[in-house]
């Protein structure tokens, strides 16, 4: 289980199956509680992580998720990086549009996740993979 997580170092979780997406959620929840996010903010960041981890699995063909505690001097927060080496995204702006989907979902994964966090960054190269970084700060 996720107890006994060493918050001093970034935690990595491979994403290769459905169960791994569940593990990502649990890991993110543990860290979010540790950095004292409010209940609503915890829920938001775990939900965002769930969406993005599923993207990594379904569209990226699997990859890794890394969760780290960050500190900007005034506030603490958590930063999560989702990396896959899948086909990448040809048109990022389009992919970030509500309702756009190639996978038969609701098309809210990327755009929705972006609304749930404070910082959102996506880097993608067609044919090489995608790297999404999100950050949520404690209030």
């Amino acid at each position: 289980m996720t107890s006994g997580v060493d918050l001093g170092r970034p935690q990595a979780q491979a994403v290769g199956s459905d169960e791994d997406v569940v593990r990502v959620r649990q890991l993110v929840r543990t860290v979010a509680v540790a950095v004292k996010l409010s209940l609503v903010d915890q829920t938001k960041v775990v939900t965002a992580a769930s969406e993005l981890a599923r993207n990594t699995l379904v569209y990226g063909g699997g990859g890794t998720v890394e969760v780290a505690v960050v500190d900007n001097g005034r506030r603490t927060g958590l930063r999560i990086v989702f990396v896959d080496s899948g086909p990448g995204i040809a048109d990022v702006d389009l992919a970030l549009t509500d309702g756009y989907t190639t996978g038969g979902g609701l098309g809210l994964g990327l755009s929705g996740a972006r609304r749930l966090v404070d910082e959102f960054d996506i880097q993608t190269t067609p044919g090489q993979g995608t790297r999404v970084t999100i950050t949520k700060w404690s209030r």
Binding site: V40, K44, E51, L108
Partner: peptide, 10 residues
């Protein structure tokens, strides 16, 4: 908290 998040998610 779940309801608030769902609304934000769209």
């Amino acid at each position: 908290a779940v309801a608030i998040t769902l609304v934000e998610l769209g």
